[in-house]
């Protein structure tokens, strides 16, 4: 009797979890179904399945260009943020000065502020600086939005790092900068990997800021997808979404393998 009850409880819990997962992931499932539809309009596959929209993605020039732009932006912004953000996190974790907490909040704020606010602010700021090249503008904007991810995750990693290791490397014969590179970099590698993944993803799917800072010559993928949707109703965007989804999943899985999910989430 009691045993049946526990079994029932376990069953109820399983059902509940499955339902929750289904509801949370329903949009993704629908997008996947739409992308496989053979119908020429954005709809669930009623007449049959096909892979033609995936083929079309790779034939569309209007997608390839923005995809390249987005990749370039995400890669370069992540790389630069990784260097700047690590230096920033090192400075913040190694010193105590008045206004330090304010500075931390300031650096992390792009993560919390609405994209529209940052977009407008950057638009005026870059114009005041006289920067008109739209790729450069976008690059600066993407550094601003990726930096907080790097700083935050690296700060968390540094809080667990024993700086006596750097001292040890120095007494063993490495000059200060080399000692940091020799000891800090391998020990913080997991933080760097997860920081880079989050920064890359934040840059790659950024829409709001690119809307303000970009122009018609430099279009990022998210913007182009919206543009495409406004002129065409075929399921190509669904196919793009699924491709991006799988790209993200694969990169998360790889980093999870490399550094463990816990470090990925908490830094």
């Amino acid at each position: 009797m009691k045993r049946n009850l526990t079994l029932l409880k376990a069953f109820a819990r399983g059902l509940w979890l499955t339902l929750a997962l289904l509801i949370v992931n329903a949009p993704l499932i629908i997008v996947l179904l739409v992308s496989l539809s053979s119908s020429p309009i954005f709809d669930l596959p009623r007449e049959g399945l096909s892979l033609r929209w995936y083929a079309k993605v790779f034939q569309l020039d209007s997608i390839a260009g923005p995809l390249l732009t987005s990749l370039q932006l995400a890669l370069s912004a992540t790389a630069v943020s990784l260097v700047l953000g690590t230096a920033c996190a090192l400075g913040l974790s190694r010193s105590r000065f008045p206004g330090r907490d304010l500075l931390v909040t300031g650096v992390l704020s792009p993560m919390m502020l609405p994209g529209v606010v940052i977009g407008i602010a950057l638009l005026f700021y870059l114009r005041a600086l006289g920067i008109t090249n739209s790729f450069l503008s976008l690059f600066i904007a993407h550094v601003v939005i990726t930096l907080p991810y790097i700083v935050r995750i690296t700060l968390a990693g540094l809080s667990l790092f024993d700086f006596a290791l750097v001292d040890a490397a120095r007494t063993l014969g490495y000059p200060p900068v080399k000692a940091v590179i020799k000891v800090l970099v391998p020990n913080l590698a997991p933080s760097f990997v997860s920081a880079a993944v989050f920064a890359f993803l934040a840059s790659f799917d950024n829409y709001a800021i690119a809307l303000f800072v970009g122009d018609i010559y430099t279009v990022t993928l998210p913007i182009q997808i919206i543009n495409y949707l406004s002129v065409s109703t075929d399921p190509v965007v669904a196919a793009i979404a699924v491709i991006l989804l799988f790209g993200t999943l694969v990169s998360l899985l790889i980093t999870e393998r490399l550094v463990g999910l816990q470090r990925l989430a908490g830094g």
Binding site: D162, A164, L165, D167, A168, A169, T171, V183, N187
Partner: peptide, 9 residues
């Protein structure tokens, strides 16, 4: 130098 908590890598 042998550090207070060893500082082994």
């Amino acid at each position: 130098v042998v550090f207070q908590n060893y500082a082994l890598f």
